[in-house]
Design a protein around this nucleic acid. Structure first.
Lengths: 240, 240
DNA sequence: TAGATTGTTAATCGATTAACAATC
DNA sequence: TAGATTGTTAATCGATTAACAATC
């Protein structure tokens, strides 16, 4: 019996309301399935989770996986998983399950995240170092191509494969390196200022590991990491 | 215009299927409202998120907050927020909003997380140090009361306010310190073994910051932290 | 009073689930 | 063939949203 993240309740509670969610887009793909339409928030979020589990399962040498196993690890109902997948094609084999490797590439295609994407990491403290040396981002095609800090003692040192730069170089580097995501691993007090700089530099996705509530323009998406929230939530069901 | 986490799509996608979700429990409270029943997964997760934002707003000296402001920060629809809250009482003031401090204590009461809960942190590397020195857990009544590592070079050193202990002491310390949550901040290869030890020691909630897919008994809840998943998801809506 | 915001209703949409035939 | 698991249908439940009266 595997685990699963209590993560996203029926709505992974983070229901987002980001403008139109189901408008048609240009490029179609395999033919059948809703490939030509923008995915709903729910489907996109679940597919991302399946992808995470599949990526790890592949690492562990697993060749096939059933919807029930995926369900055990994601806590998404197995019928819903089969439903989500069958909307895009018949990926599974009855009596056997899904081929892990082929399902990974199918989902990557659906999520259009087959390519490489560049990340800027802000903050070279403990958290920044932990993120820089982790595989999690790299596994999904995200590359930390620049690390910034304001501390003169840290600027110039090497973290992961990158030399730490001073924050004053942010705007230039974001453009040069084609950075689409900024990750804030800085103290709460510094977060808003750096978010402003990221926005000014044209970054549209910010990952906030600080506690600060960030104010950004509507076209910028902020994801605030909140382990304590998930813990509160898990604890509620433990206590009751 | 504040940000918000793409987090939990309409379902914070992590819909969980953990047995009965709406059975009645013993203690009733204020009288009106569904206080006597177990919260649905969705409501509990959303309330946790409101609490996170409110806690930070309180720190920033904010006295009142409207459902629209809460919506901007959580990406939960403002009508839904009012609906969620009004189920437990009339906490708001028309034309004004909600009192931040009073709403914090109301939600804490609803989530039954007013008390202190003890955490064991496994791994005294960069991530462990980052977690130990962060406020996020402390803000919500979680206390890191023990830190473990297997590295002899780390055992005995001080991280945060704790002296790092050897993992062999785990079972004893879990019992002595009444630890209910184990946080895994260790390399992927070590995660399952430590999860097994936590389970054997009686811990029922595990927070997994490694990439490992953990197999645990059904009564244990595992939350796997997955920043890359959230990033994939945010990127999809950015690219389309 | 005028403006703002809550609390609540009603309608819709999507997630959830059980069930089962199809088929590997 | 027998067992397992997918793909799909149909029914239910809860989330989402707009709208608006109540009221601070």
């Amino acid at each position: 019996m595997p685990s699963g993240s209590v993560w996203e309740p029926s709505f992974r509670v983070t229901s987002v309301a980001y403008g139109e969610l189901t408008t048609t887009i240009d490029d179609a793909e395999d033919g059948d399935g809703p490939m030509g339409e923008r995915l709903s928030l729910g489907v996109a979020a679940r597919l991302s989770r399946y992808l995470q589990v599949l990526t790890q399962a592949k690492k562990m040498g697993k060749e096939t996986i059933s919807s029930q196993e995926l369900s055990d690890y994601t806590h998404v109902n197995s019928t819903q998983i089969r439903r989500d997948l069958s909307g895009f094609g018949k990926f599974g084999k009855r009596g056997v399950g899904y081929n892990v490797e082929s399902l990974v590439s199918q989902i990557r295609k659906i999520l259009r995240t087959a390519g490489q994407h560049n990340i800027a990491l802000l903050g070279a403290g403990h958290l920044g170092k932990a993120i820089a040396s982790s595989d999690i981002f790299a596994d999904h095609g995200f590359r930390v191509v620049a690390i910034f800090d304001v501390d003169p003692a840290k600027v110039g040192t090497t973290v992961g494969s990158q030399v730490v730069r001073h924050t004053s170089e942010l705007a230039r580097v974001v453009e040069e390196e084609d950075i689409v995501v900024g990750v804030l691993a800085v103290p709460t007090a510094a977060a808003q200022g750096l978010a402003d700089q990221l926005v000014a530099a044209g970054v549209k996705i910010i990952f906030n590991y600080s506690e600060s509530l960030l104010d950004v323009p509507p076209e910028v998406t902020v994801h605030t990491s909140s382990p304590a929230v998930d813990l509160l939530y898990a604890l509620y069901f433990y206590l009751t």
